[in-house]
């Protein structure tokens, strides 16, 4: 009788132990599963916010185009009005192509080599790319305006941009928000750190009055002879 009860108690204890372990696992799983779902919800929320912002931009763009459409309609029949609107469009297209001199707030970056190393195309290429990434609206290297087809090529000690030979030190000017540019360029593992690792000297200065000249328009930089406009 005595052994019997002891065995019974032992069995009950084992069952209890198993239940406890099982429960611990189950609760743990429940907590994890819930957090996973919450994460998915957060991701979707982020995506939704992005999409909404995107649509706002699109709506604004559409409104702008509609406004211009109305202006064209209103100008119908009036030569001076039409000319004015046409000139506006022309100015915009020129500026986007890099065919106007522009002025604005921005930064001047001085890039020079040391006794040990030369500046290569990729150094300048990456620097320009980072400036673009920080929303620059116009860039020049030694006053050569960077346009859509501007190459950067190492040619011995020169760098060639827009088919023109440039010598160091390089002065890279950009019209952009100076704070944003400095933030992008100077972050840890950023482009300045990289350039300095190559023993190059980099200096960034903000300025309120940056003037960037237009690209030369002799048909050698912006060629379009092989481009056929597509009208749908």
């Amino acid at each position: 009788m005595k052994i019997h009860t002891n065995i019974a108690i032992m069995i009950v204890c084992i069952v209890l132990g198993v239940i406890l372990a099982w429960q611990y696992k189950s609760i743990d799983y429940n907590v994890k599963a819930a957090s996973l779902q919450n994460k998915r919800v957060d991701e979707l929320k982020d995506e939704l916010i992005r999409e909404k912002k995107n649509n706002e931009d699109l709506a604004k763009r559409n409104a702008d185009i509609e406004k211009r459409n109305r202006e064209f309609e209103d100008a119908r029949g009036k030569i001076s009005e039409t000319t004015k609107l046409l000139n506006e469009e022309l100015g915009r297209a020129r500026t986007i192509a890099g065919m106007t001199d522009v002025k604005g707030k921005g930064v001047i970056i001085n890039l020079n080599h040391s006794d040990l190393t030369y500046i290569e195309d990729i150094n300048i290429l990456e620097l320009i790319n980072e400036l673009r990434a920080s929303d620059a609206q116009a860039i020049s290297v030694n006053n050569e305006r960077i346009v859509a087809t501007s190459e950067v090529r190492t040619a011995g000690r020169f760098i060639m941009i827009n088919g023109k030979q440039l010598l160091p030190p390089f002065e890279i000017k950009a019209i952009a928000d100076p704070e944003k540019v400095e933030h992008t360029l100077k972050m840890i593992g950023g482009i300045i750190e990289k350039l300095e690792a190559y023993q190059l000297q980099v200096e960034v200065k903000a300025s309120d009055n940056i003037v960037i000249p237009k690209v030369r328009d002799d048909g050698t930089v912006l060629k379009t002879d092989l481009l056929t406009p597509v009208k749908d």
């Binding site: 915009r92 500026t95 986007i96 106007t100 002025k103 609206q137 952009a176 928000d177 003037v211």
Partner: peptide, 12 residues
């Protein structure tokens, strides 16, 4: 948006 390419430059 084309405007975002040029809204902070002043054309001379």
């Amino acid at each position: 948006s084309v405007d975002k390419l040029m809204n902070s430059v002043e054309v001379l």
